[in-house]
Simulated assay, not measured.
Amino acid sequence: MHDDPSSIASLLRARYRRRLPSSLDELTGPEHGMVALPLHIAWSGLRTLDLGRPRQRMSLYRTVLAEGMLEDLCRFLNRDILLELWPVLHKLISRAIKDVWEEAFLELRP
């Protein structure tokens, strides 16, 4: 895939690419319980989410993928949960995020 360097989509993909962990194994976030996201990630809406509630778990993953930096991705996302959620999650996130993550990690490709 060749991006037009001046396109917004290309800039977004580059931004998300810089934040990627080198491996999904770096995603060591919690599997259960309540998670309080910092203001720089969840600047609007609910900031404390319950991983035991499917909608809140999905919301947390959408928000962290969109707004989190590398450290946040590793701290708040869990590899196994990401893999479990991906078949639905990839339809709920931006095309730029989906493309970057699926290009980087074979495990996420359909």
Rank of each mutant, 00 (worst) to 15 (best):
M58N: 11
M58C: 14
S59D: 10
S59L: 07
Y61K: 08
Y61F: 13
Y61H: 05
R62V: 10
R62P: 02
T63I: 09
V64G: 00
V64E: 00
L65Y: 01
A66L: 03
E67A: 10
E67S: 10
E67K: 03
M69W: 15
L70P: 05
L70K: 14
L70G: 07
L73W: 01
L73E: 01
C74W: 00
C74H: 05
C74L: 03
R75S: 05
R75M: 11
R75A: 06
R75C: 08
F76K: 03
F76P: 00
F76S: 01
L77A: 07
L77I: 07
R79M: 10
R79H: 10
R79A: 10
I81Y: 06
L82Y: 06
L82I: 03
L83Y: 13
L83T: 14
L83R: 15
E84R: 15
L85C: 10
W86L: 15
W86E: 13
W86I: 14
W86P: 10
P87A: 12
V88I: 08
L89K: 02
L89H: 03
L89D: 03
H90A: 09
H90G: 04
K91Y: 14
K91E: 12
K91S: 14
L92G: 11
L92Q: 09
L92N: 14
I93M: 09
I93W: 05
I93R: 02
R95P: 08
R95D: 15
A96N: 15
A96F: 09
I97H: 01
I97V: 12
I97C: 02
I97S: 01
I97D: 00
V100Q: 04
